[in-house]
C-alpha cells in the first residue's frame, strides 16, 4: 500500500527527530530519514518541510561555504524546536496507542 499519505502527517516529527542530536543540511536530513527506513519520502517534501519548520521558528539555519558546488545550508534545532519535538512525540505515542487499541478491538470483534 502507498504509505506516502501516512508519511505526510508525520514528516514534521521525523525531520525534527533526525535533527535532534546533530545539525545537518538538506541532504543529510534526507539520508538520515532514508537510513531510518523512510524510503518513500520525496526529496522535495523534505526540503519543503525544512523551510516550513524554519519559518515557524523551530529550526535555526546557517550557511557553510563549500569548495566544490553551492554552499550548504545547515539546519539545527533551537529550544522551540526541542519543545515541539517533545510535545509531538507525546502526541504521536498517545495517538499510536489509541490507534493500536482501535485496531486490536476491530480485530477481536
Amino acid at each position: 500500500m502507498d504509505t506516502s499519505q501516512l508519511l505526510k502527517g508525520v514528516l514534521d516529527l521525523a525531520v525534527l527527530a533526525v535533527l535532534r542530536d546533530e545539525d545537518g543540511y538538506g541532504y543529510d536530513v534526507l539520508r538520515r530519514l532514508r537510513a531510518g527506513g523512510m524510503g518513500e519520502v520525496g526529496d522535495a517534501s523534505v526540503y519543503g518541510t525544512l523551510r516550513r519548520l524554519y519559518k515557524a521558528g523551530l529550526l535555526t539555519s546557517y550557511v557553510v561555504p563549500s569548495d566544490e558546488g553551492p554552499h550548504r545550508k545547515y539546519y539545527g534545532m533551537n529550544d522551540a524546536g526541542r519543545e515541539r519535538l517533545v510535545e509531538s512525540e507525546k502526541a504521536w505515542r498517545a495517538f499510536q496507542e489509541t490507534l493500536d487499541a482501535i485496531l486490536r478491538k476491530g480485530a477481536v470483534a
Binding site: Y27, D43, L50, P70, K73
Partner: peptide, 12 residues
C-alpha cells in the same frame, strides 16, 4: 532560500 536548499539536492 529555497533554491539554496534545492541546488545541492539536485546536484547530489
Amino acid at each position: 532560500e529555497v533554491m539554496e536548499d534545492v541546488e545541492p539536492n539536485v546536484l547530489e
